[in-house]
Amino acid sequence: MEIIMAIAAGVLVTCAVYLILSKSILRIIIGTGLLSHAAHLLVMVMGGLKTGDAPVIKDGVTAYTDPLPQALVLTAIVISFGVTAFFLVLAYRAYQELGTDNIEEMKGNDSYD
């Protein structure tokens, strides 16, 4: 399962990077959302999967799944929510001010300063 999930995370990253490299700012944001999903899965996989019970203390259970990656991913999930929201609003405001959603057209011009 670990190998399969590692490959799956790789596929998710591939899709995410492809989206991020495109010109439409909407696709870029969706790409970052996808990238964070991939990262969360990746961290989980690297910690090892299903090595024991859920990390909640129960009498008679000795083997638990590694809780540390889970804690890290939990933090990451919430942070990525904040970042995605920020990104969304940034894109929205940029569209309002500049009238375009094409990242290439948003390129700054040195002659402005």
Partner: peptide, 16 residues
């Protein structure tokens, strides 16, 4: 913090 942040975000966007 989580409640505050989420609601701030949603509310400001909704009001915009």
């Amino acid at each position: 913090v989580v409640v505050g942040v989420t609601m701030t975000i949603i509310q400001t966007i909704g009001e915009s």
